[in-house]
Amino acid sequence: MSADPALARARRRRRVEAALPWLVTLAAFLLWEGGVRILGVAEFILPAPSAVALSIQKWWWPILENAGQTLFTTVLGFLLAVAFGLALGVAIGSSTLLYRGLYPLLIAFNSVPKVAVVPVLVIWFGIGTWPAVITAFLISFFPIVVNVATGIATVEPELKDVLRALGAKQTDIIRKVGLPRAMPYFFASLKVAITTAFVGSIIAETVAANAGIGHLMIVASSRFDVPLVFAGLVVTGVMGVLMYAVAAAIERRTTGWAMRGQDGTGLAVGG
């Protein structure tokens, strides 16, 4: 079975690669734990991972509840951003006029810190779920728009010529070439957008909510329960990684062609 040493080496290498993220994370936690213990850092300044773990164990139900709320607002805002970002990206990418007209506005909009928008959202929607959803949406749609627009706008002119000479309408060109071509860009942007969406809803929750991980952390910090604050951070990080993994898995399944199947996993499904 192990006749081919090169193959065995490749397999071992792949196994190491798969284990690497776990090992690095574990090492980071150990370093953190060790550092805190050796230096004797007070718990209300930087709690050790073990203290954070205890806190998670102690408060597991409120954490789960609030994490659920945050996941809900984030995913809702993110889905809105996907729908809106895809539509706007297609529009901007396929029309120079719209591109010229809207792009500066988008840049200006994206430069506004979203924290500054939350109070306005509170005035409009009151405290609760909506400010978080909308902040998550606002913060995550920009990368989607830019990426989709880039994918569509950079279709090879000769390819467009082939289709136009056949009498293809603009919508045909977008459907047959623009959109499929923009998909790798789109999914790349999803991986960025889903993580920024978490940032958005947690920002909003710290200011304008009575539920969610952001709210939990604010409450915890007002009670100087620093381990619980860190528990919130860890839980957020875990959710971010999980959602990223989902986006990455979808990307691999749908746009394997863009990776040219180098690693043998990327056999595409035709479109």
Binding site: E158, V162, V177, R260, G271
Partner: peptide, 18 residues
């Protein structure tokens, strides 16, 4: 565009996802 022409260029310009 004349809408009746078949075209081919020096580079193949195939769609990589098809």
């Amino acid at each position: 565009p004349v809408a009746i022409a078949g075209m081919a260029f020096q580079n193949p310009t195939l769609l990589p996802w098809r």
